[in-house]
Design a protein around this nucleic acid. Sequence first.
DNA 1: ATATTAAAAGATAAAAAACTCTTCTATTTG
DNA 2: CAAATAGAAGAGTTTTTTATCTTTTAATAT
Lengths: 144, 144
Amino acid sequence: MFSKTCEYAIRAMLFIAQKSKSGNKIGIKEIAKGIDAPEYFIAKILQDLSRRGLVQSAKGPNGGFYLEKNELKCSLADVVRAVDGDRIFSGCGLGLKECSETHPCPIHHEFKKIRKDMRIMLEKAKLGTFNESLEQHLAFLKRQ
Amino acid sequence: MFSKTCEYAIRAMLFIAQKSKSGNKIGIKEIAKGIDAPEYFIAKILQDLSRRGLVQSAKGPNGGFYLEKNELKCSLADVVRAVDGDRIFSGCGLGLKECSETHPCPIHHEFKKIRKDMRIMLEKAKLGTFNESLEQHLAFLKRQ
DNA sequence: ATATTAAAAGATAAAAAACTCTTCTATTTG
DNA sequence: CAAATAGAAGAGTTTTTTATCTTTTAATAT
């Protein structure tokens, strides 16, 4: 579905959203532990998301990553698009570059619906809206 | 969504379904051309599907691949499962191995619906049901 | 100012996926 | 039976993805 990079990215962003809500910054090591992902790899991914302006970072002591108010309103779809591009939202299910309404693959129309549902679901899911369920342990970002 | 291997597999199977309907066998070169895919790679993929019993093959002159009546009733879901396993039907959207009803990731429930819709759609899509639209050029398996 | 901290950047390595080539085996046809 | 055909099997290569390590840069606190 998503690339592994993208899965890590979403989990990291949700973790940062949760931990940085009171203006805290959160370091890469803590993030890596918090979502059970390889530290150096997560670092790279967040560097990239930071460059794209989806997350803020600060160097030096007490530095780390955090989300600003407007970034908490970003959707998972934004994260997915930043990492994987929009192939999942618009690509052909059978990998045909030329697949379109007028030149459809055999499952074009059926796929369109699925992709749309996926897009809507991910657009609705904002980074800032999962904190409660994470804190109440109704949802998880790693094994336990 | 699917691996490239799986995309080729589906397209190849639909092509074979279409071309082998009157008991014809169809060779790898023709398949590769017909779906615009790398010949040797398609050969490997079909070897695997043949071993798993999703498609028949015959060696020697006039040999090639073909589908038997019952195989035409196979669904795209069967092909996907044979090639990519069922991670797309049951895997966690955020890549968590331990994601479940009782230990869900933040988007577990939303994803469940999408995955289910996808599964139902692919279960409904039988290999034998696309011949007409392919023949009438209402659907395509390659660029043109 | 200097030492410390933590991310950025760049280079490298390992693993997986995608793709190719060569040799072997089975089948058919003359 | 011999020659030709076409898939099976195995080995090998290339590309992409995933992951790691090292050096640099920026910020902070003493």
